[in-house]
Simulated assay, not measured.
Amino acid sequence: MIVVTTPTGHIGRQVLDHVLAAGRPVRVVVRDPAGLPAEVRDRVEVVPGSHGDPDVVARAFDGADAVFWLVPADRRAAGPVEAYREFSRPAVEALTGQRVVGITALGRGTPLAGHAGHVTGSLAMDDLIAGTGVPFRALAAATFMDNVLRQVRGIKERGMLFDAVSPDHVQPMVARRDIAAVAARLLLDDTWTGQEEVPLLGPENLSGNDVTAIMSDVLGFPVRYGQVPGAAFKEQLIGAGLSEAMAQSMLDMAIAKDKGLDDGVTRAPRHAIDTPTTFRRWCEDVLKPAVEAA
């Protein structure tokens, strides 16, 4: 039995699709079972509720062999450690030796990791899981290409992409679909043991200016990159509904990335094999249809 958390989320639903396609028995933890497509509900065992609830995870993990673990950050949390580590504590206490595949972030081992907002919280969560001694694969993902989708309307109407990171800073980027594929592969493989961090870098490093040049070419109209000053970036996030602490966490993460948080892993051929989607291909497959439909 494989347990999938966040089965209606951007990554979780793709993980679920892969696991179901392999014919394995699946149990999902979901706040609102109605959010699952009817054809999926008929093929899975549903445990309703939050995977931060002790009773829910105890039921979900009972008799399970593997767990896909992803924490959606609480926009109103008191801070990133509370959003990630403390949310995960009930699940960690419910583990009884299951293999765990979790989604986390790059940055471990760098001087910036302790002051990197959401990343710091994610790494604290990983330490909590690892402390149980269960077999664990922490999928340390680079910046998601898919984050661009948050700005589809601005891209279409103004030809602009905004972020707090410097326009010339080069960093790895990865597609969510590649992350889901790696997670599903590990969930379906019952031969691995021990604990390991698996960096998911995508096939190339790109700057903000590189990204908008590719977008311009694929979309057929010019898109420019605009760097948002830190204070304005934080205020925009608070205006969008984040708590002050979580807005600061997002800013801290952006600052750390700009200083090289994601540069600690040396790129190897394995990274392009595990996460093959280029940004251009992602733009052709995902961004262009989204912009045309906006």
Rank of each mutant, 00 (worst) to 15 (best):
G12W: 02
Q14N: 08
L16W: 02
D17S: 14
V19M: 08
A22Q: 05
V28F: 01
A38L: 02
D42P: 00
R43N: 06
V47D: 04
P48D: 11
P48W: 12
D55F: 00
V57N: 04
A58I: 13
D62V: 04
D62H: 14
A64D: 11
L70W: 01
V71D: 00
P72D: 06
A73H: 12
R75M: 10
G79M: 07
Y84V: 00
Y84T: 00
R85T: 03
E86D: 15
F87L: 06
V92Y: 09
E93N: 13
L95A: 14
T96E: 15
T96P: 07
V100H: 12
G102H: 14
I103V: 15
I103D: 01
G107I: 11
G109M: 11
A113R: 05
A113P: 03
A116F: 04
D126V: 13
I129W: 15
T132E: 01
V134H: 10
P135T: 01
R137V: 10
A140L: 10
N147L: 09
R150V: 07
K156N: 06
E157Y: 01
L161S: 05
D163T: 08
D163A: 13
P167K: 05
V170Y: 02
A180H: 06
A181W: 03
A183Y: 09
A184P: 03
R185N: 08
L187M: 07
L188F: 08
D189C: 02
D190P: 07
T191I: 01
G194H: 07
E196W: 09
V198R: 08
E204D: 12
N205T: 13
N205M: 14
N209G: 03
D210G: 11
T212V: 15
T212C: 11
M215R: 08
L219R: 04
V223D: 05
Q227N: 03
Q227R: 15
V228W: 04
G230D: 12
A231Y: 08
A232K: 10
E235N: 13
L237N: 14
G239C: 11
L242H: 09
S249Y: 04
M250F: 13
L251Y: 08
M253W: 05
A256L: 10
L261S: 09
L261N: 05
D262W: 05
D263M: 12
V265G: 14
H271P: 13
H271M: 09
I273P: 03
I273S: 12
T275I: 05
F279G: 10
W282V: 08
V286K: 06
A290N: 08
A290R: 11
A294N: 09
